[in-house]
Write a protein that binds this DNA or RNA. Sequence first.
DNA 1: ATTATCTATAGATCTATAGATAATGC
DNA 2: ATTATCTATAGATCTATAGATAATGC
Lengths: 211, 211
Amino acid sequence: MGTTGAQGGRRVGRPRADQRPDSGLSPRAELLAAAAELFTTRGYAATTTRAVAELAGMRQASMYHYVSGKEELLADLLESTVTPSLTCARELLADDTTPAEDRLWELCRTDVELLCGGAHNLGGLYLLPEVRAERFAGFHAVRAELKDAYRQLLAATAAGGALAKSELELRTDLLFGLIEGVILVHRSDPERPVSAFAEATAEAALRIAGI
Amino acid sequence: MGTTGAQGGRRVGRPRADQRPDSGLSPRAELLAAAAELFTTRGYAATTTRAVAELAGMRQASMYHYVSGKEELLADLLESTVTPSLTCARELLADDTTPAEDRLWELCRTDVELLCGGAHNLGGLYLLPEVRAERFAGFHAVRAELKDAYRQLLAATAAGGALAKSELELRTDLLFGLIEGVILVHRSDPERPVSAFAEATAEAALRIAGI
DNA sequence: ATTATCTATAGATCTATAGATAATGC
DNA sequence: ATTATCTATAGATCTATAGATAATGC
């Protein structure tokens, strides 16, 4: 099982000062979960290493046993957030038996579910100003690929195929903007049931696309 | 003229250590402009009072002669950003000679222009996680009124009038989400000409609305 | 005298390292 | 012996105040 599962009561190493019921997560996963919550609610810069570590159940210094610092936590969270969307996009691009309109709808729906579905508002990480830094180039590359999948699917539709290149780019930007904009909608009303909202957003996306 | 204009060479008070060509702005306006640039690019928490003051051309401590701290700067910037949109919305709501469809289009277009038009990406302030704090309730109240104007205009259209209440709320959220989402689009491509983009977004907004 | 600015700094952080400690493993 | 954690802390900030200074105004 490696280091992932935290079994039973008996663990190697000095016990934690602050005893708590076992979360079932590895210490690194506990740190990531704590960082996700704090980064999305308070912001990255405003979150101290102490706040992350203590929410994860350990002392500030102990965090450095698992990660090099806050940056690594954010980089990990970002990649883990966008990767599932990209996986979905690749599958839909490869599926040439389904009409492009339906595949685009499905990509929108899934993406909204993923952006709004997690325990914390993980999509909110995209909004952090720090994310633009060079350090997170990996995340940006994956996101660019995802956006390109939207473009390709849009171009494969009847309505999209009729567009000039620059017009296609604009529609893609608006479409992608709508999808990412749901992060803001979700932030302002986190109680809304996600699944119906995701479908409604997908309908709206197709309407923007001109379908 | 009050304290707004900085005339000629001769000014009361000790000269600044770092001499620069006159910006034509009052010291407070210089601070606000500096804060706008830094808050939108680096984020609020990551921006130090020193960075703001020095970009504005004065020493860190001198800032406190004009403002009580960073919070006041952000509060001011937020309100100054949303107020023009609300003014426009009120005028459009009062205008009962123009079809609601056209007024909704115009509100969308103007709002996008305002969000994306400024020197810095001022709309980007909306994305800062700190903005949710109670301290900025004034901003949230104004924004809620703006969103309600969207709802009223949408309800006044032929398509919107046919919707059930919950459906109208959902459409309003999607519409408002699209408009605010353009902040993200603008951030990822700040070079795009704003005015054509604003019109394209307004068209897309009407399509979402079902018009 | 009034004003706008400056320099200096106390007090409060926050990060990241060093070294100690309390478990299990062998 | 190995490991995970702890406590302690040095060094680097950052904020906000105190008090000095260098202009103009009268």
